[in-house]
Write a protein that binds this DNA or RNA. Structure first.
Lengths: 108, 108
DNA sequence: CAAACATACAACCATCTAGTTGTACGTTGT
DNA sequence: ACAACGTACAACTAGATGGTTGTATGTTTG
């Protein structure tokens, strides 16, 4: 599994930094899909898509459950939210800057 | 120079997928810093930090303004917000899935 | 003017990444 | 039993990435 917060962030953002993976994530957030069903949507080999799914799984953005011979992939919305909250924290840093600027203006 | 939404998303997430760049972004969201001042914080060459700043700049996450011989870098909170809104759209996709599941349950 | 400073960028290198093909193995259906 | 299906993974390749050092250019200071 993935270690610290920074490692988690690395994995999250790296997983999201590829348009094929973002598209796969959209599909599996909308509903369960087998790896083969996902692979049918893209102009690349099954193995390539399977690796993208593995990257998303390793980042915790999707989970798989076995059903017979298929692996059904499903998006984890909680993980998506936790990425969003990392960005919210960045915005909070910015708010601190604005607050400091306002203080300076008032002191004049 | 005209990039699509997907190219922008690629650049955003790739820029954020490195912990040094996330740390630089935190600093420049908190306030302006020269490239040299930023470089002093990290255990790597000035050139390496300068390249990280360039990646963030190309992604639109920070801007620079010249002041004398220094370049002062400043974080762009609007860009951070637009990344966050991409994630919100993913969450919306997931809400659609839940709505569909609820409809199925009601039809039973 | 010369020296020191701040920045940008080229060239290079090791490693990672995203794709490929091929193989192996469990599951399903005939 | 066996053929077809669904998946995983290894080995390989081209190109991207993150780091290095060295050089060039503009700016400030003595």
């Amino acid at each position: 599994m993935i270690e610290g917060d920074e490692d988690r962030a690395d994995a999250f953002f790296h997983a999201l930094a590829d348009r094929t993976r973002r598209d796969i994530l959209r599909r599996v957030l909308a509903g369960e899909h087998s790896v083969t069903a996902l692979a049918a949507s893209y102009d690349m080999s099954f193995a390539a898509v399977q690796k993208h799914v593995a990257v998303l799984e390793r980042a915790g953005l999707l989970t798989k459950r076995r059903q017979g011979r298929e692996q059904l992939a499903s998006g984890d919305v909680e993980a998506v939210r936790s990425v969003a909250s990392m960005l919210d924290e960045l915005e909070e840093v910015w708010r601190g800057r604005i607050a400091r600027i306002d203080t300076l203006i008032q002191e004049e």
